[in-house]
Amino acid sequence: MESRARAAAPASGAAAPRKLWPGALAMLAVPVLLLIVGPHLPSYPLRILDMILLYAVLGLGLNIIVGYAGLLDLGYVAFYAIGAYSWALLASGQFDIHLPFALVLLIGASLAGLAGILLGIPVLRLRGDYLAIVTLGFGEIIRVLMNNLDVVTNGPQGIARIDEAHLFGWTLSTPDDFLYLLVAMLVVVFLFVWRIQESALGTALSAVREDQDAARGCGINTTRVKLVAFAFSAFIGGACGVVFAAMQRFVSPESFTFWESLVIVLVIVVGGLGNPFGALLGATLLILLPELLRAYADYRLLFYGMALVVIILARPRGLISRQYGPSWLMRRLGGGKC
């Protein structure tokens, strides 16, 4: 009994920082700063900021599958598309259905989560490259479906005349409005994925990533755990899709190509796999870089590609590697042992 008590003391000492506020304050500074500075920005930079936040949230969501569980999903855009089309179909003149935004946010995210589970059941027995190829195929299937299901989705012409979103009496129409919404989403999703990472579920996912067979040998139901990861990840992707459709007020299959999936994967690979801070930094870089390179017109994609290659060569684990996550920051600033 005595040895247990003695063992528990350093355990919590190493796990939790002595003081919580310095780390919490440092992390809160980012959304607060965004909320203060954001609305004063001109329209164009503000739109870019919105896109950065949207991709950051997408990156946080995809990180659950790719970063934590180590399963390469190249079709994440499918979940995003399901969310976007949910808003486009349930709040537009298309079928003259006009559901409230909060409800569609829930429906879209849940449908995407369900799609994640349905996709996961057959494909999660696959590993590595095979899984990547099947998910890529799924992404394409959803896009082709949207493209050809004319009666429902209007095909390649897409759906216009989408409703303005209202959330609890607050109208979401300008880029400022979406800034507030996206910052709130970022905070919620950030806390959500951080919580997953620190919980037993995160431990199980890490074990699956490191050595799936040994994880099973330790009693982890790897299939179930991966399904849960897929569902959570898809849910977040779906929620992002709903917000995207509400922001653009127009959706078409063009917005959901393989390129989009690739950008989201790049966001987390460049930023740092399995690190929530990495998703933020990666999104900032990947959205900002093409805008900064606009001056080079024709050479833009060339420079973009070169910049990515240089980053990956210089930092193969991404800009911020896995261990320097939010828990590390809390310990670092809160005086705990690192």
Partner: peptide, 18 residues
């Protein structure tokens, strides 16, 4: 800790959200 992860997914999710 991997060897002590709760076996049921339900309790795993409940655990995750405190």
């Amino acid at each position: 800790e991997v060897a002590l992860v709760p076996p049921r997914v339900g309790s795993l999710i409940a655990n995750t959200f405190g």
